[in-house]
């Protein structure tokens, strides 16, 4: 809702400032008339007006962007302060801006729920392993496709990149995974993600900007293509590999569809899928807590409610992203710039 309001505001502002900005055009039309006193006065007034409109524009612009930023960041803040505030307060909607009666019992309790530990491990494992594989594969393939000697290079490059533009669809994919015995298998998280055509294109574009003479010199020194890759290309392409890594980390950690499609074994559920089932089983969550034996120790102030569990799990799920995100931000903006220059 607020989004549309903002846009309306933006448009109104656009029109109003455009109208008041017209004096600038007058100045442009008569630049040589400055010595004439009357006109110069009017120009000065108009200058003032332009300045005023500029200031108004800046204020409105900054306000709108602040509101947008707040809209994006507040939900996370809201969830975090509610999970660390006393549950009876947060359940009644008293915790909206500042946390009250801070405690971390929600977290220690949620950790005791059966399944969360395994799910967190699965999510962590697939993120680390999957990211490592994807980054290595993208770097290696991106490098190989810059080597002119590679047998049928153009053909293989197309062979990889064209897969960006078609897919067989959910059902054929499911049938394939079933035939390959990858359903209910941890490898289904890793193997299909290893070759990522988009990352390959990114890395290849970047490596092409590294002077060819560096590789040639190393080859003259007797290094084979793999040594060149390991000792020259890898260290030099760190920024783009960081970009690929962040994409991969986020993709792996957030991935939900593959668990939904291919996994029925509960011990292989990822954190995302577990969170989804929790949100959907709002009513049965209380029972879940009862069964875990947490209730016995809980007093009235920190009593578990379905909402508090849901929120706590959500925060646990989103926290790694919140941590990783600022670290890599500078890298992926750089990476996107490379990508946009390419396209």
């Amino acid at each position: 809702m607020e989004n549309t309001n903002n846009n309306q505001m933006k448009n109104e502002m656009f029109e109003s400032v455009e109208n008041s900005a017209k004096p600038g055009a007058v100045i442009k039309a008569e630049p040589s008339n400055i010595p004439v006193s009357g006109k110069s006065k009017s120009i000065a007034v108009k200058h003032k007006k332009t300045k005023m409109s500029n200031i108004i524009f800046n204020i409105v612009n900054i306000t709108i962007f602040s509101i947008l930023a707040l809209l994006c960041i507040y939900p996370f803040y809201y969830m975090i302060i509610n999970t660390i505030s006393a549950n009876d307060l947060s359940a009644n909607g008293f915790v909206n801006f500042i946390p009250h009666k801070i405690h971390f019992k929600n977290y220690t309790d949620v950790m005791k729920i059966k399944g969360i530990g395994t799910a967190a491990l699965i999510s962590l494992a697939r993120t680390l392993l999957g990211t490592f594989c994807t980054v290595f594969a993208s770097a290696f393939l991106g490098y190989m496709f810059t080597r002119a000697k590679l047998w049928m290079r153009t053909f293989w490059y197309r062979f990889f990149v064209i897969t960006m533009y078609f897919n067989a669809g959910i059902i054929p994919m499911y049938i394939t995974m079933k035939n390959l015995h990858l359903t209910d298998n941890f490898l289904v998280y890793i193997l299909p993600a290893i070759v990522s055509p988009f990352s390959i294109v990114l890395v290849k574009t970047y490596i092409e900007s590294i002077p060819e003479s560096l590789c040639e010199a190393a080859e003259l020194e007797g290094a084979n293509f793999f040594e060149v890759f390991l000792h020259i290309i890898l260290p030099l392409s760190k920024p783009i590999l960081a970009t690929v890594a962040i994409f991969s980390i986020v993709g792996q950690w957030n991935s939900f569809q593959d668990t939904l499609l291919y996994i029925t074994n509960q011990s292989l559920y990822s954190l995302q899928y577990l969170l989804y089932t929790y949100i959907n089983q709002a009513s049965s969550l209380a029972a879940l807590v009862h069964n875990s034996g947490i209730q016995a120790a809980a007093n009235i102030a920190t009593q578990q409610t379905p909402t508090s569990i849901r929120m706590t799990v959500s925060v646990i799920v989103v926290l790694p992203i919140l941590f990783v995100y600022p670290i890599f931000q500078k890298f992926f903006i750089k990476g996107i710039m490379i990508g946009s220059v390419k396209s």
Binding site: L68, C72, P75, L275, Y276, I279, R310, V317, L322
Partner: peptide, 25 residues
């Protein structure tokens, strides 16, 4: 940069997470 960092953040959470936020609010 601050605005950019804040507004790009939701892109990095999953749809499950978005649903969770929707549910919270």
């Amino acid at each position: 940069n601050l605005i950019q960092t804040f507004t790009a953040l939701p892109n990095f959470i999953s749809w499950v997470m978005v649903y969770s936020i929707a549910f919270c609010l």
